[in-house]
Every structure is written in structure tokens, then in C-alpha cells.
Computed example of a mutant assay.
Amino acid sequence: MTDAPPSTAPLASRFELVTIVASAGGIKALGELLPQLPVDFAVALIVVMHLNPNTASLLPQILNRMTALKVKDAEAGEKIEATTIYTAPPDHHLLVTGDRRLRLTQTQKVNFTRPAADCTLISVAKCFGHQAIAVVLTGYGHDGALGVRAIKQHGGRVIAQDPATASVANMPQAAIATGAVDWVLPLEQIPPALAKLVQRRG
């Protein structure tokens, strides 16, 4: 569980969506992760971070400086496109619909937060199934734990940041405790692991 995915593993290049979830320390972690993704990273990404619900988010602008991939706030009804990073806006849960479009809701908070990682991951699991990868980074609390269970149950893959390399270990620890995590990796090993999974053929 602690090793990066081997290049010879029989996992097809079947993945279409990577969902990255984080809380405290997440900007710093993303600043190390996103620049290391290849410019031809040919899947869509969703980033869910716990944000202040009372202020406009600068997350897309911040992340845009970290990567050559397109970064934008998710919009309701928007179709998910490859090579684009969608961020969950403040005070909205970000969901994926059956026709692979984005949906924003203001239903009750989950794990005391909105957006909540669990809401996004559970909807991604139902829609993308075995084509989904979840990544749990640094953060307080246990948001994401139910979500990674759903990802695994629907045939997807789960990566958790090694808690020893996280600014705040709670979220990756909670994910690991579910038994649904495929790989526990130091932050610097997550981008090449994602690249191997996404680029693999077979």
C-alpha cells in the first residue's frame, strides 16, 4: 500500500477524473503537487478545499499560477472536460451528475463544511466508477473518509498523502483508516504516481 503504482501493473489508461481534496495546508501541498503534473495530463481534475464561505475565492487564480493546465471555478451545468482543473466555489457542494456535468448545491453542511469532500467524492464514485482517482491531502477532520470508501467500492483508485509529510495529518489518516486507500505516498511521489496511472495503456 505504501509503494507507487508500478509501471507494469495491469491497470489500463482508463481514468478520466482525478479528485483532489484538502483542507488546512492544502494550498502549500497543491503548490508542490500541481507543478509536477505533466503538461499533457489528459484527464480532468476537481479540487475541493474547505474555504471561507463569506469571501470570494481566489483559489482558481492561485492554482493557475502553479500549473499550465486550465483552472476555473466550477459552474452549474458545465460539462467536465479533460486537461481542466475545476475548483469547488465557497459555500457550495460540488457534485457530478450522471451525464458528467457539474452541479452546485447549498444543501446542509457535511462534516461541518460546505464544500465537503465527501459529497464530491460520493457523486464522482457513482458517475465515474472505475474511471475515478481520489487523492486525499493534508487537513483537519475526517472529511473524505466516506468518499474514498465510495470510490473504492465503485472500482476507482485512492491515493493518500503520507501523514508524515502532511501539514495536518487528520484527513489522510482518516482516509487510510478506512482500508480503502491503494497507495500512501509522500507528497513528492503523488504527481509521478498519477502520471503513471493516467498515461498507462492496456
Rank of each mutant, 00 (worst) to 15 (best):
A68S: 15
A68K: 08
L69G: 14
L69T: 06
K70W: 11
K70P: 14
V71E: 15
V71C: 14
V71K: 08
D73L: 13
A74V: 01
E75K: 15
E75W: 11
A76M: 10
A76I: 02
E78V: 07
K79D: 13
E81C: 09
A82M: 12
A82F: 07
T83W: 12
T83A: 14
I85M: 07
T87C: 10
T87P: 12
T87M: 08
P90E: 11
H92A: 01
H93Q: 07
H93T: 04
L95F: 02
T97L: 06
T97K: 07
D99Q: 11
D99M: 04
D99F: 01
R100I: 00
R101P: 01
R101A: 00
L102R: 05
R103M: 05
T105C: 04
Q106P: 11
Q106K: 11
T107Q: 14
Q108I: 05
Q108F: 00
K109S: 06
K109T: 03
N111P: 06
N111A: 00
F112P: 08
C119K: 02
T120L: 04
T120D: 07
L121N: 05
L121M: 03
S123I: 00
V124I: 00
A125V: 00
A125K: 05
K126C: 08
K126P: 07
F128W: 11
H130A: 15
H130R: 15
Q131S: 14
